[in-house]
Design a protein around this nucleic acid. Structure first.
Length: 754
DNA sequence: GAGCACTGC
C-alpha cells in the first residue's frame, strides 16, 4: 500500500467507531486464508460499507474487482455513494454500482456494488467471473431468489478440485454476509467455512404480546380494528416518538387510516404524556404504488407537538427507513405471492409472518433510540401459527425462468443443484414442462437455440416466446410495448384508493372521480379496437408516447405516469436486446399468410397457449392447460360483460378474490392454438423427472417414442378434451383461498356494523 | 360488478 493512498483513505472518526473496525486485521486475514467466509452481524455493524473498503486497501483489487451484491436497487446505489464518499473518490471511478437501467461503473472501478440479479446476468456471460477477485453476497438471510441461486452457483464452482481455477488466472474469494440467523446451516452449506461474528449496534426494543388476535382469528381481518385501538392507546399514553403500523395492503391501510382519523378526532387534545405535550396525530398511509410526491411527508419530521403515525405495508420492513420511529404496531400478517403447482397458478394471499420477520419489524423501532413493539397477537399465536423463518422465495415461486437460467449455465441436473433449501420436486418438474412447451428445451432437457435466445430477456418465458415469435415475423413493434407494459406495476389508477391525508386529520376518498377514471379507461379500450386487453396496453403505450406531453396525457387519462415511464425504459431495453440477437446469423425467420388483423393475437398465442380457457356455461370459463380450473373475467377487463360472445380466450394473469378472475385477456380462435395444445399433454412426469436428473439415453428416448405412438389415437375432439379436463377439476387450493377471502370480507362487514 | 404485498434482470 502506497503512502499517498494511505493518507487519502485514512479512516474517518465515524468509521473507526463502527463495531467492525476492531476486527479489521482479523477479517482481512480470514478472507486471505479461506475460499469461503461467512460474516454475520446485525444492522449497524458496518459490514456492508467497511469490509469492501478494508479488502480494497489490503490489495485484493490487484488482479480483479470486488463485487458486492444487494437484493435491492436502492441499497446498492446508496451504499456505493457512501463508500465512494468515505474513500474520497468520485462515484463511478474506483467505487461504482450497477443496477438495471443504471450502470455507474468504469474501467477503473475496483469496488462494485450491484443487485444480485446483475451478478447473475454477468455469470451468464462469464461463468467463472474472471474479472472478480472477491465476490461478496450481502443480506443472504433475506433469501432472495437470485441470491439463493448465486450461493448454489458459487458453491458448485468450487465443488470439484481445480474446477474453479479453470479459465481463471488468480483465485476467487467468496464472502457471504448475513444477519445472525441460521449461521450453522449456512456455514455447513459452504463446506464448514469459518464464521466471523461482528456485534451490531442498535438500541433495545421491548416487545409485548396482545390479547385480541389468537389462532382462531387468522382468517379474519379483525386485526385492522385491533391495530387502530392499540395505535390510539400508544398515542394517548406513551411519550413522544412516532408510530409505525404494519398491515398487509392498500385497501386495509386506507380503512385503518379512516378509522384512526375518526377516533383521533374525538380525543381532547393538548394532553400531557409524561411531561410532553401532544397536540395531534398525523396519519400517513404508505405503500409501494403510492405516488412519490405524496410520500414526502412520511420522511419529514412532524410539526412540533404532533405525533406521526405511518400505516405501512412490508415496504417499511426493509426497503425504506423512517427516522424517529419509536413504536411499532405489528398486525402479524403479510400479503405473499405463493405459487401453487397443483393449479399452476400464483395466488396472492394473506398469511401470518414468521418469527424472524416479526423481529425484523420490531427492530425498526430501535434505529435511533430504545423503542417498543406492540404485537397485537397473542403469545399462543406466536407459538402455534408463526413459523420460525419465512419460507425462502425459491420454495414458493414459479421456477420457469430460473431453471432456464441454470440450464443455460450448463447445470443440467436442476434437481440435484446445491440449493440451500431445495424447492419441491414438482415445482421443478412443472418449470421443465413449461420450458418444453415453449420449445426452450427439447425432450432430452437440453436448451434449444430458442431457449438460448429466451434467456437473454428479463421477462417471463411465455412473454419472451411471444416477443420472439413477433420478431421472427417482423412485427416486434406490436409485442415489445406489450411485454414492457406487462412487466411493470399496474398502470391504471383508481382514484378511490389513492386518497391520501394531505392535511392533519383529513379523510380520503373521491367516489365521483372513480367514475371518471373508469370511463376514461373504457374509452382507451374502445380506441384500441375493443375486446382485447393486450391491445389496450399497446394503445396506451403508443398514444402516450406520441402525445408530446406524456405526463399530462397520463394525468388526463388516469394512468400511472411513473409506471408508464418505466414501461418506456423496459421497452427500450428489450428492443436493444432483440437488436443484438437479431444481428446473429441464425435468428429465426418465419412467414405468416393469415389475416393481418389476426397477427397480433396469433403472436400472443405462441406465448400464452398454456393460459388458454374455453367458455363452458354462462360466464364461466374452464382452463385447458390440464388443470381444468373454473375462471371468470375480471370486471376491469374489456371482455367483461361480453362473455356470451366469446368462446376461447387467452389470459395473462389470475387473481383470486371472491372468484377466480383473469384480468388481461383476449379472445382467440381454437384453430390458433389447436396445434399447440397437444404439447401441453405430451410429456409426463416420469419423463420429466429423468430429464431433470441426467442425460437421457437413446434407449430411453426410444421407449418414450414407442409409448407415445401407442397413446396417439385418432384426433380427439375438443368436446372430449373439455369433458376430460373439467372432470380433473383440481381447484381445491383456489377454493380454500377464496373461502379465506370471503371469511375475511364477512368479518370486515361485521366490524363495520355499529 | 371490482380487495395488487414486495423485490429483481
Amino acid at each position: 500500500m502506497s503512502k499517498s493512498t494511505d493518507s487519502k483513505e485514512s479512516e474517518s472518526q465515524q468509521s473507526k467507531q463502527l463495531p467492525i473496525y476492531r476486527h479489521k486485521a482479523e477479517l482481512i486475514r480470514a478472507v486471505k486464508d479461506s475460499t469461503f467466509l461467512l460474516v454475520t452481524g446485525e444492522t449497524g455493524s458496518g459490514k456492508t460499507t467497511q469490509l469492501p473498503k478494508y479488502l480494497h486497501r489490503a490489495g485484493f483489487c490487484k488482479d480483479g474487482k470486488i463485487g458486492i451484491t444487494q437484493p435491492r436497487r436502492v441499497a446498492a446505489i446508496t451504499v456505493a455513494q457512501r463508500v465512494a464518499q468515505e474513500m474520497h473518490c468520485t462515484l463511478g471511478k474506483e467505487v461504482g454500482y450497477q443496477v438495471r437501467f443504471d450502470d455507474c461503473t468504469s474501467q477503473s472501478t475496483a469496488v462494485k456494488y450491484m443487485t444480485d440479479g446483475c451478478l447473475l446476468r454477468e455469470i451468464l456471460a462469464d461463468p467463472v467471473l474472471s474479472q472478480y477477485s472477491v465476490v461478496i453476497l450481502d443480506e443472504v438471510h433475506e433469501r432472495s431468489l437470485n441470491t439463493d441461486i448465486l450461493l448454489g452457483l458459487l458453491k458448485k464452482m468450487f465443488s470439484k478440485p481445480g474446477k474453479a481455477a479453470e479459465g481463471r488466472s488468480f483465485p476467487l474469494k467468496v464472502v457471504v454476509m448475513s444477519a445472525t440467523l441460521e449461521t450453522d446451516k449456512l456455514s455447513s452449506f459452504l463446506g464448514d467455512c469459518p464464521v466471523f461474528t461482528i456485534p451490531g449496534r442498535t438500541f433495545p426494543v421491548t416487545s409485548t404480546f396482545g390479547f385480541a388476535v389468537g389462532p382462531k382469528d387468522i382468517e379474519s381481518s379483525g386485526y385492522v380494528k385491533e391495530v387502530v385501538k392499540v395505535a390510539l392507546d400508544v398515542h394517548t399514553s406513551e411519550k413522544a416518538g412516532d408510530i409505525l403500523v404494519f398491515l398487509t395492503g392498500q385497501v386495509e391501510i386506507e380503512r385503518a387510516c379512516d378509522l384512526l382519523y375518526e377516533k383521533a378526532e374525538s380525543i381532547d387534545y393538548r394532553y400531557d404524556v409524561e411531561d410532553q405535550t401532544v397536540e395531534g396525530l398525523l396519519i400517513l398511509p404508505l405503500y409501494g404504488s403510492m405516488p412519490t410526491d405524496q410520500q414526502r411527508q412520511i420522511f419529514q419530521p412532524p410539526p412540533s407537538g404532533i405525533r406521526k403515525c405511518v400505516v405501512a405495508t412490508n415496504i417499511a420492513a426493509t426497503s425504506l427507513t423512517i427516522n424517529g420511529i419509536k413504536y411499532i404496531i405489528d398486525s402479524g400478517f403479510v400479503k405473499q405471492l405463493n405459487h401453487n403447482s397443483r393449479v399452476g397458478m400464483d395466488i396472492l394471499e394473506v398469511v401470518p409472518i414468521s418469527k424472524s420477520e416479526a423481529e425484523q419489524r420490531a427492530g425498526r423501532a430501535g434505529r435511533t433510540s430504545a423503542g417498543k413493539c406492540f404485537r397485537i397477537y397473542t403469545k399462543e399465536f406466536w407459538e402455534k401459527n408463526m413459523p420460525e423463518y419465512t419460507v425462502p422465495e425459491i420454495q414458493r415461486t414459479s421456477l420457469t425462468a430460473v431453471v432456464l437460467t441454470l440450464k443455460c449455465l450448463g447445470v443440467h441436473d436442476v434437481i440435484r443443484f446445491p440449493y440451500l433449501d431445495c424447492p419441491e420436486e414438482r415445482f421443478i418438474l412443472e418449470a421443465l414442462k413449461q420450458l418444453y412447451q415453449f420449445d426452450a428445451i427439447d425432450r432430452r432437457g437440453r436448451v434449444t437455440r430458442l431457449g438460448e435466445l429466451m434467456v437473454e430477456f428479463p421477462l417471463h418465458p411465455g412473454l419472451t416466446r411471444a416477443v420472439l415469435k413477433a420478431a421472427s415475423l417482423g412485427c416486434q413493434d406490436l409485442l415489445l410495448p406489450v411485454a414492457a407494459m406487462l412487466s411493470v406495476e399496474n398502470i391504471f389508477i383508481r382514484p378511490e384508493l389513492c386518497g391520501v391525508n394531505t392535511d392533519v386529520l383529513l379523510p380520503s376518498g373521491h367516489p365521483e372521480k372513480q367514475k371518471e377514471a373508469d370511463e376514461k379507461h373504457k374509452a382507451l379500450a374502445t380506441k384500441s379496437g375493443s375486446m382485447n386487453d393486450f391491445a389496450t396496453l399497446l394503445a396506451v403505450f403508443q398514444l402516450c408516447k406520441s402525445s408530446g406531453r406524456p405526463s399530462a396525457w397520463c394525468k388526463d387519462h388516469w394512468v400511472h405516469w411513473r409506471a408508464l415511464k418505466s414501461a418506456f425504459s423496459v421497452e427500450t431495453q428489450l428492443r436493444e436486446i432483440l437488436l443484438r440477437l437479431q444481428q446473429k446469423r441464425d435468428f429465426p425467420v418465419d412467414t405468416y399468410d393469415g389475416e393481418k388483423s389476426e397477427l397480433f393475437r396469433r403472436c400472443l398465442c405462441t406465448g400464452y397457449f398454456t393460459n388458454v380457457a374455453r367458455r363452458s356455461v354462462g360466464k364461466v370459463f374452464c382452463t385447458m392447460d390440464g388443470h381444468g380450473s373454473m375462471i371468470h373475467i375480471h370486471p376491469s377487463s374489456s371482455l367483461f360483460d361480453h362473455e356470451g360472445k366469446l368462446n376461447w380466450i387467452i389470459f395473462h394473469d389470475v387473481l383470486v378474490t371472491s372468484k377466480v378472475y383473469v384480468r388481461t385477456a383476449c379472445p382467440i380462435r381454437y384453430e390458433w392454438v389447436k396445434d399447440l395444445l397437444p404439447k401441453l399433454h405430451e410429456v409426463d412426469v416420469y419423463e420429466l423427472s429423468s430429464v431433470a436428473r441426467e442425460e437421457v439415453t437413446d434407449e430411453e428416448m426410444k421407449k418414450w417414442e414407442t409409448r407415445e405412438a401407442a397413446k396417439r389415437q385418432p384426433e380427439v375432439s375438443t368436446e372430449d378434451v373439455m369433458k376430460k379436463l373439467e372432470k380433473r377439476n383440481n381447484e381445491t387450493d383456489v377454493c380454500d383461498a377464496r373461502a379465506r377471502y370471503l371469511q375475511r370480507k364477512q368479518q370486515r362487514q361485521q366490524n363495520k356494523a355499529p
